[in-house]
Design a protein around this nucleic acid. Structure first.
Lengths: 140, 140
DNA sequence: GTCTAATTCTTGACTGAGTCCAGAATTCAT
DNA sequence: ATGAATTCTGGACTCAGTCAAGAATTAGAC
C-alpha cells in the first residue's frame, strides 16, 4: 500500500512527496537498479523527476534505512528494498548480474571483526565475486 | 629487492618497465593509496609518468594478483601489496581511514556462500564500516 | 481553509575518477 | 642489431555524482 510507505517516511521525519513515493515504488519493483535506471522508472510512474531529486531522496532514504545502497566495484551504486536482514550479494564479473545471498552463518556472523582497531563498527558488507552460469557457458 | 619484483612481473608474462617497478614500490610504501596518490608517489621515484600508465599497470598487476584492488563505496579505488591471505578491511565512514583486519574465522570462511546460484565464485570481499576512534571523539 | 516556515524539487553547471585512442617509445627474443 | 609485441604518452572524453540558487510543495499553526 502506498499509505504504508507514506507513514514510514513520516515516522522518519521525511516529508511525503510524489517523487519519494514513486522512488520507493521504483526501488521495490527494480531490485538492484542503478540511480539512472531508477530515474527512468520514476519517470514512468509520475512523468518527470530531476536527477537531483532522485539522488537526494535515495540518499535520505538510505540514511534512514528505508532502502539499502550497495556500491559494487566498477559499477554505479545500486539500491534495494530488502533491509534489516543482513543478506549479502553475489555479482557476476562479466555481466554485472546481482543476486541476493543469505548470510553464510545464518545470523550476522561476519559482523564481528577479529580486531576492531577501536572502531565502532555498524555494518559488514560482503560481496561475492564470480561468474554467473550464463557468462560461464559463453566462456567469459 | 627490485630484482624480485622484476622476476614476478616476468613470471606473469608482463614486461619489466621502470614505470611498473616504481608502481610496485609505491604500492608497497603506501598501502591503501588511491591511484592519484600513487601517481604522485611514482613521480617522486622516477620523475614522470602518465596517468594512463599507472592505471593500466595497476589493472594488469591486479589481474595477475601481484597487488589487490579494493573499491570502497564513496571513495576511489585503493591498492595494496598484501595478497593471498584473505584479509578484510575496516573503513571509517567519516574520514575514510582504512585498516586491515584478519579474517574472522581464520581461514577464508566467508568464501563460501550459502547458495551460489550456479555462480563460479572466486572471491569474497568483506568491508566493515564504522567510525574510527578519532572521528568518534569528534562526534562525527 | 489560510498562512508561514521548513523541506524538497528543478535546472544547469561542475568535479573527480577513470577510459579511449593514436602515435611514439621500450622491451625482449632472436 | 632487428623486428614484433608490449607499454607509455598526452589529451579528449564519458559517466556517476555533487553543488548551488531559486521556485515549488508540504505540513503544522491559526
Amino acid at each position: 500500500m502506498e499509505g504504508d510507505i507514506a507513514q514510514k517516511l513520516r515516522e522518519n521525519g521525511l516529508q511525503v512527496t510524489a517523487q519519494r513515493l514513486a522512488i520507493m515504488r521504483a526501488v521495490a519493483e527494480h531490485p538492484h537498479a542503478t540511480a539512472d535506471e531508477l530515474i527512468d522508472a520514476v519517470r514512468a510512474i509520475i512523468g518527470t523527476v530531476s536527477k537531483q531529486a532522485v539522488y537526494s531522496s535515495l540518499g535520505a532514504l538510505a540514511e534512514k534505512s528505508l532502502i539499502r545502497r550497495i556500491q559494487p566495484a566498477g559499477s554505479p551504486a545500486r539500491y534495494e528494498d530488502r533491509v534489516g536482514d543482513n543478506h549479502h550479494h553475489l555479482i557476476c564479473r562479466s555481466c554485472g548480474a546481482t543476486v541476493d545471498v543469505d548470510c553464510v552463518v545464518g545470523e550476522a556472523p561476519c559482523l564481528t571483526a577479529s580486531d576492531d582497531h577501536g572502531f565502532d563498527i555498524d555494518e559488514a558488507e560482503i560481496i561475492f565475486w564470480g561468474h554467473c552460469p550464463d557468462c560461464r557457458s559463453v566462456g567469459a
